[in-house]
Amino acid sequence: MSKPMIKVDQLHKSFGIHEILKGIDLTVHQGEIVVIIGPSGSGKSTLLRCLNCLEVPTSGTVKVEGQNFADPSGRYHEKRVAKLRTEIGMVFQSFNLFPMMTAIQNVMAAQIKIRKKSPEEAKVTAEEYLKKVGLAERMHHYPNQLSGGQKQRVAIARALAMEPHIMLFDEATSALDPELVGEVLKVIRKLADEGMTMILVTHEMRFAEEIGDRIIFMDQGVIVEEGKPDDMFNAPKHERTKRFINQVLHPESEKV
């Protein structure tokens, strides 16, 4: 098998007295597309946010391309964490574009500030990625002049321009109007075709089934079941998985 890009060992995360993640083990290989599904509050977003250390694990380790976020003594040094994060792009539910910058400035900012590229170089890269997400025409618009779908595509371009090896999508289409979901999924699909290693948290089950190499079902802070999309959606083994899949695929048949 190809090399592991992300390796999570016995990851625990608590907020106060609430344990959100109760011992997660997960390995994601190069080029693999892993989709995490599960009911709200199951810890799937927290897990994703631990993968780039936006949430610092309470215990356990997260390794990216063999490198631990924590240093050998177990401390999380800001510079070390920041450096590793540049290998991981993240797309948020609420886009989080920088409102005072145009689309292209959003995509250029981190290239200049973090990758230390010249503005000219950064501009070339930014144009390339904005073109890729289909927004060449809109690169000089401010975020508040863009639709939700366009904003999310700029956010994807912004992450890609750092040339990360892994992309994380945290409910990237949940805040979008239904008619705008497709344009964002199309961009994600294109990345999948190019072999990007991706981990997605999503409620788009059809998309998960179609794009995922592996589906992970989480509930109450643990991975209940994982497997190939076909098995997970059509022949789930666990009762909880069955119930969840049934609920999301047939919401009208839900019995309380």
Partner: peptide, 10 residues
């Protein structure tokens, strides 16, 4: 968070 995810320090 968006900035941190891009590799900015706090």
């Amino acid at each position: 968070e968006a900035a941190l995810a891009l590799g900015y320090t706090h």
